[in-house]
């Protein structure tokens, strides 16, 4: 309980690159992204007395960053740059055949016990790798929707895209992420 800022220094340093990668999804300007990460760390240090220790330290810091990013995105709205959709509009072609049925190597396998995975930090490492592997705008929209839990209506408003476009991007993101998680985690788990 007597945790001091100093005792978390190593944790902070380990987290910094991950926080920056997560921030860069939403804030392309690196200098600005680094400032936001810095602010998050300062806020976390100031808030250490309130950190109960029940949540994992890194997810607690993420939640602070998440609030800061949502603030940032909402403020950016007026001066937003035109959201350029990713180049890979045909990104799902490899998964489906000409009749739009699953290709043999893309058929979903059965996942064993996905329910308890949120407790396993190694799963989230794979998850983050899969997320960052997506084209940047696809990853951006997915993170806004699933990790920051904004409604699609607000995402569209902030990014200046149509809801149809938003659903299309999320569809692509989810299927690619599904495939990546299956290869990176579930197939390995079932062989273990």
């Amino acid at each position: 309980m007597q945790s001091t800022p100093a005792s978390y220094t190593a944790d902070f340093e380990a987290l910094r690159p991950k926080l920056l990668a997560f921030t860069l999804l939403q804030v392309p300007d690196k200098g600005h992204a680094e400032d936001l990460v810095q602010e998050t760390m300062l806020a976390a240090i100031e808030g250490l007395t309130r950190y109960s220790g029940t949540a994992q330290f890194d997810t607690w810091v993420y939640s602070i960053l998440r609030h800061k990013l949502i603030d940032y995105i909402r403020k950016q709205k007026r001066g937003r740059q035109l959201f350029i959709s990713d180049e890979d509009t045909s990104g799902l072609d490899g998964m489906f055949n000409a009749k739009e049925h699953w290709n043999a190597d893309a058929i979903p396998s059965h996942w064993h016990n996905p329910e308890d995975l949120h407790m396993r930090s190694h799963f989230w490492e794979i998850f983050d790798l899969c997320l960052l592997h997506l084209p940047s705008n696809t990853a951006r929209v997915f993170a806004l929707r699933e990790l920051m839990e904004l409604e699609t209506e607000e995402i569209c408003d902030c990014l200046g895209i149509s809801e149809q476009n938003c659903w299309t991007i999320l569809h692509r993101a989810r299927l690619k992420l599904r495939g990546c998680l299956e290869k990176g985690w579930f197939l390995k788990e079932s062989n273990a």
Binding site: T54, T59, R66, H118, L147, E149, R174, R178
Partner: peptide, 18 residues
């Protein structure tokens, strides 16, 4: 599986809200 991913993402933050 898509539902699993959706709920896992929500649980990632469940006990982390300030």
């Amino acid at each position: 599986q898509l539902l699993s991913i959706h709920t896992l993402c929500q649980k990632r933050h469940i006990d982390t809200s300030i």
